[in-house]
Design a protein around this nucleic acid. Structure first.
Lengths: 143, 143
DNA sequence: GTAATTGCAAATTATTTGCATTGCC
DNA sequence: GGCAATGCAAATAATTTGCAATTAC
């Protein structure tokens, strides 16, 4: 499998865009600290490595990374978009604790199949989906 | 089944809040035109009935309606929160066309059961979930 | 060389809040 | 009558954009 950096470089070349040190650092930082970072949080980490990089560049690069398919925007219901690297990883959904924010990645073949099936029944070609389960985790329930 | 207006009135009384003409109009407008309105769109419609109602009141009332469980905020990935009335309606998920925005409401018992099951396996108490399927609808595919 | 990229600051968008006034219960 | 609600305008918060200077290819 190609390295994500190479995939990104190829994507950029294809679109007549350029690889820059800033873009390299941003992708690299995101790959390293692969939680579910917001643009803001990523910006903070990126600035530690190169203080001269601006917020706007982080936003712009995240959009490119999304378009290239390397990174996926997540949409928990709290007003901030978070990002995770999706390249080379299996698709998964999220099980989120409403109290503490704990976030567990889940996959279920039964559900995935039914989704395909449902889309088909309506004549749709399914491209992707998002599923978020919200509940209370065991730790929080005990308290 | 109680009328939504009555449910809302009861909710307000319970919380020591007050029913007002503005709140009545806002709920009524939302019930009538029950697409997936954004706060902005709802505000526009509400203003036709009473030009003196302010945006803030619409936002504030939508929050109350969400808290009361009458209305559900939706989160398609376009930066605007939309709302639908959920009272007295079965829960459903959404199948969305990425080209034309067509939005079909779907439910699937198999999926609902598996979701419960999955949450349980991780020790979570499931409160709610969101599932969005994104694809291309038959009409758009033909073009 | 030239078009894309950058950082900055100002602009936008969606939503929230402070406050003086008004109006339910 | 008293506390909640309203409308307005100003404040936030997240993200986008215009622009002059810089840089990758």
């Amino acid at each position: 499998m190609k390295a994500p950096q190479d995939v990104f470089a190829e994507y950029l070349a294809n679109e007549n865009l350029k690889m820059t040190p800033q873009r390299r650092i941003i992708l690299d930082t995101l790959l390293k600290q692969d939680d579910h970072l917001s643009s803001e949080e990523l910006y903070a980490r990126v600035k530690k490595r190169d203080g001269s990089i601006g917020q706007a560049t982080v936003y712009r690069t995240l959009k490119l990374l999304s378009d290239s398919g390397l990174v996926e925007p997540l949409d928990f219901a709290d007003g901030v978009t978070r990002y995770e690297t999706s390249y080379g990883k299996d698709h998964h959904d999220h099980l989120i604790c409403e109290r503490c924010g704990k976030n567990i990645e889940i996959v279920d073949e039964t559900i995935e199949r039914r989704q395909e099936q449902l889309a088909k029944e309506h004549g749709f070609t399914l491209l992707r989906h998002k599923m978020y389960l919200y509940g209370i985790c065991p730790d929080c329930r005990k308290k």
